[in-house]
Each structure stands twice: as C-alpha cells, then as structure tokens.
Amino acid sequence: MRRAVPLDALTALYHRRSGQTHLVTEPVPAILAALAHGPATLAELVVRLELQGLVADTDTPARLRERLDELETIGLVWRL
C-alpha cells in the first residue's frame, strides 16, 4: 500500500491509494514499519517500537497518539 525510500533525515513515502508523496521524519517511518506486522493497540505499538529499539524513551504514548492521529488524517493508518 505504500513504498518508502530513506533520503536523509527525511523519508519519502509513496501512498499508492492516493498517489500522494509524503516526506516524513522519525518516528513516522518506525511507526509504519511496526504496524506493517499487523494491527496493534497503542500499548502494543509501544512494545513493538521498544523491542526494535526504534523509539527513544522520550516518545511517550501521548506523543505517539499525536503522530497516529496525523497519519490517520492523511490516510496512512486507520482505526479498526
């Protein structure tokens, strides 16, 4: 559903459904990579990210939720 190419500090994402290109920075690529393994609750997502060492301690669940809300707005994640 999407294709990601790391550029430098930014990652280029191509969203096949909308045909749009997004330029995103961490932790967005990490969130999308973690959710690529399947749906997760917020708590499960935090565990997945910590297990992979993809998110720093400062990325609290509240901040993750903000990022998820933004990603939902542009159609890159959705609620089940």
């Binding site: 294709r3 190419v5 550029l7 430098d8 500090a9 930014l10 280029a12 191509y14 096949r16 045909g19 290109t21 330029l23």
Partner: peptide, 25 residues
C-alpha cells in the same frame, strides 16, 4: 541534502504526479 534535491526536482518536473509510482521510483 538529498531531501532538498528531491523536493526541488518534484517542483522542476511537469509530470511527476501524473506518472504515479513510476515517477516516485
């Protein structure tokens, strides 16, 4: 930076959006 070059070349392209994923690639 690579991302700066990417952004400027999307602006310099007349058909980047029309090509879809082929253009992205």
């Amino acid at each position: 930076g690579i991302s700066e070059v990417f952004i400027r070349l999307t602006q310099a392209s007349t058909n980047y959006v029309a090509l879809g994923e082929a253009g992205f690639g």
